[in-house]
Nucleic acid binder design. Structure first.
Lengths: 140, 140
DNA sequence: CTTGAGTCTGTATGGGATACAGACCCTAGA
DNA sequence: TCTAGGGTCTGTATCCCATACAGACTCAAG
């Protein structure tokens, strides 16, 4: 047994980071903004995490991967923490997020279209005339 | 004639903002980061813009609308300011930007797909079981 | 006991703005 | 001519989502 002087199953910050893949400092950040709870401390003031923290951090990370903002995640967690979340409530949040993701995609597609069709006109030559510069400079 | 005591065609900050639709404070921000030049000042230290500033700010705003970062815009402007930009040089920058836009779209589409197919399983009912929560909580 | 690694806190950085405070100034109306 | 209101000036704070670093402390292995 390694770590035999530490209380059973107590995880330090680096352990939690290792188990979740989350950056060390980010964990602390999540605590200060309140999406992760302040963990209990050892006698020497070290954070002592357990499996519940691992689960919660993974939840947060998966939500972030799906593009939920920390504010949205806070709302999701508030439902879950209340213990009485309903599928309906969660769906409202998820649908709202989905809508904003779709809006961003639409925005970027518009940009991509303009950009691609402009760049397509470039000769790529050693000449100063350039459709991209023209598009940005035009006195529309 | 209005404004007859101001030097001919001198534009104040609010004039430039009005002509371009750019936020007042943003203009100052662009000056501090150097994408807009420090304009000449009146005797009383007021910024005195002219048409060249209008053109440059419009250029910047169009580039921002196309999602260029201010850093990328700085590069574009450096080429233009050099007066010897070539279509080839500009194309390199625009192509790089286009690639990053496409990467973002791909990312968001992946997110959209996961999110949409998960939410589609929601009953929306007043029950605690929810596929979205399950997906975020799963011990994968 | 020493040494290196881990942890603690507070604070700075980044991008891209936006907002506000407190001082100054300008112009139109009375 | 005075005054009231707006505009302008600067510096600094705020937002989001982290990431990084400094300086102090502590822990574990040799």
């Amino acid at each position: 047994m390694k770590k035999h002087h530490r209380s059973v199953n107590a995880l330090r910050r680096s352990d939690l980071a290792g188990l979740t893949g989350c950056n060390l400092e980010t964990i602390r950040y999540y605590e200060t903004i309140g999406v992760m709870p302040d963990p209990p401390r050892t006698a020497r003031n070290y954070r002592a995490y357990d499996q519940s923290h691992v689960r919660r951090l993974r939840f947060i990370m998966r939500a972030r991967e799906l593009g939920f903002t920390l504010e949205e995640i806070r709302d999701l967690l508030a439902l879950v923490d209340g213990g009485a979340q309903t599928c309906g409530e969660v769906q409202v949040l998820a649908d709202a997020h989905l809508a904003s993701v779709r809006a961003k995609i639409a925005d970027l597609k518009r940009i991509e279209h303009v950009l691609a069709s402009t760049v397509a006109q470039c000769t790529g030559d050693d000449v100063p005339e350039c459709p991209v510069i023209d598009a940005l400079s035009e006195e529309a």
